[in-house]
C-alpha cells in the first residue's frame, strides 16, 4: 500500500487556501502540478506546495488565469536558471580577480 506521509490531501489543501479543487485540477492538466491518487483520494506532494501556493496567489491576487500562470512559471524558472548561471559565472570570474 502506498504511503501518504509526504502527501497532503488535495481537498484539505483547497479548503485551507479557499480555492476550488477544479483550479488545482486545471493546473495539473497544464502540467504545473502533479496529483497523486491513493485509494481514490487525491493528494499533492508536500514539495510542490510552495510552488502551488505561489500559483494560487497569482490567481487570487492578480486574477491571472491558468494559461498566464503557466507562462509565468516557465519564465520564473528560466529567470532562476539565469540567476544561477550568473552566480556561477561570477564565481568563475573570481578566479581571475
Amino acid at each position: 500500500m502506498m504511503q501518504t506521509e509526504n502527501l497532503t490531501e488535495a481537498q484539505v489543501f483547497c479548503g485551507y487556501h479557499q480555492v476550488e479543487y477544479a483550479f488545482v485540477q486545471d493546473l495539473a492538466n497544464a502540467g504545473l502540478v502533479e496529483i497523486t491518487i491513493v485509494n481514490q483520494t487525491h493528494y499533492i506532494s508536500q514539495n510542490q506546495l510552495p510552488d502551488l501556493e505561489r500559483m494560487i496567489r497569482l490567481h487570487q491576487d492578480l486574477n491571472i488565469n491558468v494559461a498566464g500562470i503557466e507562462a509565468i512559471t516557465h519564465l520564473l524558472r528560466r529567470l532562476q536558471r539565469t540567476q544561477q548561471e550568473v552566480q556561477a559565472l561570477r564565481n568563475k570570474l573570481r578566479i581571475y580577480e
Binding site: R54, L58, D61, L76
Partner: peptide, 15 residues
C-alpha cells in the same frame, strides 16, 4: 492598482 501590482508583485519579482 492591478496594473502596478502585476508589475511589482513579489511572486513575479523574487529577491
Amino acid at each position: 492598482y492591478r496594473k502596478l501590482a502585476r508589475k511589482y508583485h513579489p511572486d513575479l519579482n523574487p529577491n
